[in-house]
């Protein structure tokens, strides 16, 4: 087993080392008697690609909820780019570039794909308090939306209401929204779960092509995707990190195999919750 996060060694360079994109320290959360996050330490450097895996109910989603500010931790601390954000609201965290997606897409019934992307773009560029502006006249929004739509293969359905498109397309729209926010840290909760292979491939392509300086944490069950995506894999079980290592190390480790890989080799578990 390797150390959870490369503990920062004494700085050898003259320039001060940049703080990690995200640093989580001793994060804990209990629901009643059930501890779903137990002293979690996790650091994401700029440009990191980390996969968070673990059996259903391990606390992966809870971890993302804690980090994104949807849940208040019982104890622990979260730093974003060296700043303590533990006490900040979900809104404030998102504004600072900490962006998350949801395991089950949460989209806006009745709005078109284009409107979803526009909303995120307008929010990032701080324009959602404009009352009388016409979105259609904003050339920068149109260009960036068109670029995202193209990249995610949503061109054919861009003006279709979100409730009238397939689940895979909804997931792609969800990801387009996250990308439109130009995150510094991106937390993806099973982005490809329940998505047909064609769309899942598109999702992975998009994630592969993310700007190199974004730190990405992805929860994912599909080990093929994990191997393709992650430089580092973190295994969570019962709210505790039980292993951190490269995908190759994970595959070799007997304990993880026993606790996890064996279970998830089975197809029916792949698209679990």
């Amino acid at each position: 087993m390797t150390a959870l996060s490369a503990a920062p060694t004494a700085p050898i360079l003259l320039a001060p080392a940049a703080p990690p994109a995200l640093a989580v320290e001793g994060l804990s959360k209990s629901f009643g008697g059930l501890t779903v996050a137990n002293e979690i330490d996790l650091t994401l450097a700029r440009g990191d690609r980390v996969a968070l895996i673990g059996p259903n109910g391990a606390g992966k989603t809870t971890f993302v909820n804690l980090v994104s500010g949807l849940l208040a931790p019982s104890s622990g601390r979260i730093d974003l780019a060296g700043e303590d954000i533990t006490g900040l609201s979900d809104v404030e965290r998102a504004r600072r570039g900490l962006v998350r997606s949801f395991q089950v897409s949460r989209l806006f019934h009745g709005l078109s794909v284009r409107e979803h992307i526009e909303l995120a773009l307008l929010q990032r560029t701080k324009r959602t308090n404009q009352f009388f502006a016409a979105i259609g006249r904003m050339a920068d929004i149109a260009d960036e939306a068109a670029e995202l739509v193209e990249r995610l293969g949503l061109a054919d359905i861009v003006d279709t209401r979100i409730d009238a498109i397939s689940y895979g397309q909804q997931r792609l729209t969800d990801i387009a929204m996250s990308l439109a926010l130009k995150p510094k840290v991106l937390l993806l909760d099973e982005p490809a779960a329940g998505v047909p292979t064609r769309d899942a491939g598109r999702i992975l392509d998009v994630i592969d092509a993310l700007p190199a300086d974004i730190a990405v944490l992805m929860i994912e069950h599909d080990m093929d995707l994990v191997f393709r995506f992650a430089a580092r894999v973190v295994v969570l079980a019962s709210g505790r990190i039980i292993f951190t290592g490269t995908p190759a190390e994970i595959a070799k480790d007997e304990q993880v195999r026993a606790a996890y890989l064996g279970v998830y080799g089975r197809e029916e578990e792949r698209h679990g919750r």
Partner: peptide, 26 residues
């Protein structure tokens, strides 16, 4: 004009899922 504006778009989104709008930073 207002319901089609950026504010109006945000408002329609809030009407569907305010929590999701918050995670966009609004």
């Amino acid at each position: 004009v207002i319901v089609r504006s950026p504010f109006g778009l945000k408002l329609r989104a809030i009407g569907r899922d305010p929590g999701r709008v918050r995670t966009l930073g609004a």
